[in-house]
Design a protein around this nucleic acid. Structure first.
Lengths: 340, 340
DNA sequence: CTGAAAGCGCTTACAG
DNA sequence: CTGAAAGCGCTTACAG
């Protein structure tokens, strides 16, 4: 049943008494006598021929493979982006090699290196939370491989980018909370080596200052980007003599979930005594009671936008002028946790 | 900056006045004079050499690439399995090409075909809900490519398999509900072309009959495997003159979520008037109020088990005797929705 | 330890 | 339209 050796175009050529050149041409739909072409295609099917893309790509000096490196494959935001990318690349027969950095800078570097070896013709990546140096991204460009950064991007690396307007989204979220009457709005911020978290903080600060509210550093909690860290920060915040009446978990919905649980645990009523806003529109934010206000990043759409950018640049002449940056406007999803 | 042409072992050989053979040997840590080896490695680094795995794999007639086809990349269960696989394969430098069938039989076939062309040396797959014919899987075996099926497997295809004991898990779930005093337990079943859904139904039936409870076909709802379909089926069930007092959404937690919502909407108190049990231990089952009893499939562990199976067979002599089947015992997670 | 040569499976200018 | 030949970048028996 299982044949140790796969059928090649030589096998087909031998059987038909023609040259491999013609077989190759027929298989690739190039100019070949119609009758012979038909015969070749039929014979290929009979002999169970499967093209060897490795050989083909090697010869052509190109590949149809794209590398993807994300912090976590099994995190809603990233798996949605990947699903979006796959939906588009599949249509054109391009493949995705997917790695996860596990939020580790070391693993991220190794993954990128592996992908370069694999001769992918594009690397799509979102940085790990530890990443603070971008030589590995520069190395990608140096090998003349297309680079597309998304969401967690390194500004200083000149590559294609697909991002959200994090600052504006945060600004709007905080303004919304102020309009709901919240007076002391705390911020849970993410690791500031990542651009996205810096931008979200800027949005928060801009919202306060543009409404003549003084920034109180006591209300800003560093590195509260997981559920556990969000919970811990909340415990501290709600124990302050002048506790906040709202918390913007700018890092993630997981962090917001931590806030939510601690608030209930400490007897604060949401949203009347405490407003909560998260980030990312994870599915569970709709399910908690009260449901959590958050920001939708259109992750699946980010994925399709990335794929579109890729194909656009695959065909276009090297317009290394100014790498394109696509910004997708996130949307504030107002739910019960901030509606009073 | 960007070099159109990548450095090859020839470039290194020329620079050093030696042959490509030696360069290749040095790079692959084969027997080479220590001094030359050092020199070669250093030069490779200087010249920014990156191995071309395509060429290497082609020459060696093997590859370190594994193909994965799952129904949905962005579904918790599958993304966890993938994360588990990646964690193990990464350690040994093997890559994952990932495709999603989108629950479409047609796309599944095309993905498998693409992966064969890509010369992957293993295909890992979980069938789409539409799949009712397995020629495409047989084709994988015919090309002498290792095949590992998981979760949604085709019994008749003799391949490696990693599965849950669905029947036993369902049996235990239903017995648990009976012990909680539920008398009329309904079943939401999945498409019966898939083995897993057949097994879950068998477990349900076995639980009833082994406890001398007559099976009431009115309480068995077909194809209720999404949230919407689960909700619809629940509406019908709860409108019966003799409505059920518990619903086992054997298809998925999404379906159970539909049950949950309709129950509340129709004024049934959970768990006192209606017990609910789902399947898969999706994160949100812990967050609903009341929380939902479900079955944990240890998805991440399934992933690592799959990878282990792969590496085991990579080295072992072709033991085509009886393809190994690894069964991972799922665990009933008892929560509020069935605790009265 | 090292070199010369062949070959993995394919594609593509170059002739005819 | 078709064939003969070279070559993508690498690895590996075969000699020495």
């Amino acid at each position: 049943m299982a044949s140790k050796k796969r059928t090649t175009i030589y096998d087909i050529a031998n059987r038909l008494g023609i040259t491999p050149s013609s077989v190759s041409r027929a298989l690739n739909d190039k100019a070949v006598n119609e009758k012979t072409k038909k015969l070749i295609l039929q014979t290929a099917k009979e002999m169970n021929y499967k093209k060897n893309s490795l050989a083909s790509n090697l010869r052509k000096g190109e590949s149809t493979t794209i590398g993807v490196v994300v912090p976590r494959i099994n995190q809603n935001f990233f798996s949605n982006v990947i699903a979006g990318i796959e939906t588009e690349t599949y249509k054109k027969g391009h493949n995705l090699i997917i790695c996860q950095s596990d939020e580790s800078f070391e693993k991220e570097k190794k993954c990128i290196s592996m992908l370069i070896n694999q001769h992918v013709n594009c690397i799509i990546t979102s940085l790990s939370v530890e990443t603070n140096d971008y030589q590995h991204l520069q190395a990608v460009l140096d090998q003349d491989i297309e680079l597309i950064q998304f969401d967690r991007v390194a500004d200083e690396i000149e590559s294609l980018k697909v991002i959200n307007d994090n600052e504006q989204a945060s600004y709007e979220a905080v303004v919304h909370m102020m309009k709901q009457g919240y007076k002391r709005i705390a911020l849970l911020e993410g690791p500031q080596n990542l651009e996205i978290f810096r931008q979200r903080k800027v949005g928060y600060l801009r919202a306060l200052t543009s409404h003549d509210i003084a920034v109180d550093n006591e209300l800003i909690k560093v590195n509260a980007w997981t559920k556990e860290l969000g919970a811990e920060a909340t415990r501290e915040l709600l124990s302050l003599s002048e506790a906040p009446d709202a918390i913007f978990a700018s890092t993630s919905d997981f962090s917001a979930l931590g806030v939510h649980e601690v608030a209930i645990e400490m007897g604060f009523t949401v949203p009347s005594q405490l407003g909560i806003c998260g980030y990312a529109n994870e599915p569970f934010t709709e399910i908690t009671r009260p449901s959590i206000t958050t920001i939708d990043q259109f992750s699946f759409k980010m994925g399709t936008a990335i794929a579109e950018l890729y194909f656009e640049h695959l065909n276009s002449p090297e317009t290394h002028a100014a790498p394109k940056v696509v910004s997708i406007k996130p949307e504030l999803i107002i739910r019960a946790s901030t509606s009073r």
